[in-house]
Design a protein around this nucleic acid. Structure first.
Lengths: 203, 203
DNA sequence: CAATAATGCGAGCTATTCTCAGTTTTCGGT
DNA sequence: ACCGAAAACTGAGAATAGCTCGCATTATTG
């Protein structure tokens, strides 16, 4: 059990949950996951440790809750890219520019939070699945666009999945563990060019 | 300090270190990192907890030592791919087949160990750097081959880095967090095809 | 064969997660 | 307004895991 312990019913307790999550986010970002104790989180939130454990069965559950929130928000951003695409039917290059730009923004908007969740995700069972889900959802949408553009080769579904996985890894490497001396915008441009060549329909 | 506490000088202590690492590897793989206590490791290794902490300053150091060993071994495997390439000067497609196959083997040979290290790496400061180093080293070698083949576009160095990051992420997703219903060898083939299109010299 | 250095030992100190019995606050019905 | 029940809150402390330190044992050196 990672999320469900007790559902807050009254207004008071909903605020308690919110203030706990806010405190957790701040302390995790400042001192890292291991460097933050649940007692400190409760203290900072101005509630007792008992209240914290009334809504979160363990420390990991705090992380899962933060990730849930973050992933939902991210999914909305990416969904907008595809709803724009459905309307304007852009070229492959324009679509990739939009998509890669969006994912890059997700990294740079709140880099600490992004890194925190990404770093902790692998060791928290539920989170890996959740991340993969988001990945597949985006890949599904991308696959649709590739079919419209007659791009992505014989198996657009698979190509789309590989593209999503690749783009995420490349941008993560570029924006969060920056190899020294490379300029960011050139890096992003290179990612777009590369995927354009990989996915473009044969001429 | 993550590695250096005391250097084992006598034969006896070198065996102690070896048996501790062996026990750590087994227990980490069986019960996960968090699910393994240092006391259990010492017990399984047949040494006292004090001896363990004489050579490893903390629990993370055990992980770093295992990673060090694994990365060295992996680097050798990949180096062989490029020394073969230097001799036979293969086509881009053959080179990619060899490289991707090699990286895939690294994932499937000891999947538990690979996943363990990969999952824990992000939260262990020294390990991230160490992984990125390995990545850049491989990218450097690949960049050389791309230049020979006049492939990889205007900046073969950057293209090579993106390729290495992408391939690792895609194979990791395919082999360790398998999306249901996809066959593995087809997946690997798709990765090769995709990178061939992305990197091939314009005709 | 001392004297010295290296290695090994494990009870217990410290810090952290999480529980639980009891108190306070809110809510619904009369 | 009042009361009983449910929800929310509290914090001492149980349980556990990482790690230390003083001392015992084994190897090396001169």
């Amino acid at each position: 059990m990672l999320t469900p312990r007790k559902q807050p019913r009254q207004q008071r307790s909903r605020e308690t949950v919110a203030v706990i999550l806010e405190a957790a986010a701040q302390l995790f970002q400042r001192h890292g996951y291991a460097g933050t104790t649940t007692n400190k989180i409760a203290e900072r939130a101005g509630v007792s440790i008992g209240s914290l454990y009334q809504y979160f069965p363990n420390k990991d559950a705090l992380l899962v809750a933060l990730a849930e929130h973050y992933l939902t928000q991210s999914a909305e951003q990416v969904a907008q890219v595809f709803s724009r695409a459905a309307e304007h039917r852009p070229s492959l290059h324009d679509l990739l520019t939009d998509l890669v730009g969006c994912v890059a923004d997700l990294h740079t908007d709140r880099p600490e939070l992004h890194r925190l969740l990404f770093d902790q995700a692998p060791r928290t069972p539920g989170l890996v699945t959740r991340f993969r889900q988001a990945e597949q959802q985006i890949a599904g949408a991308l696959a649709g666009e590739l079919r419209r553009l007659r791009a992505g080769g014989p198996d657009p579904g698979l190509s789309a999945l590989l593209a999503v996985q690749g783009i995420e890894a490349q941008l993560h490497g570029a924006l969060l563990d920056q190899p020294d001396g490379r300029d960011t915008s050139g890096h992003v441009q290179a990612v777009i060019r590369l995927w354009h060549r990989a996915l473009a329909a044969a001429p």
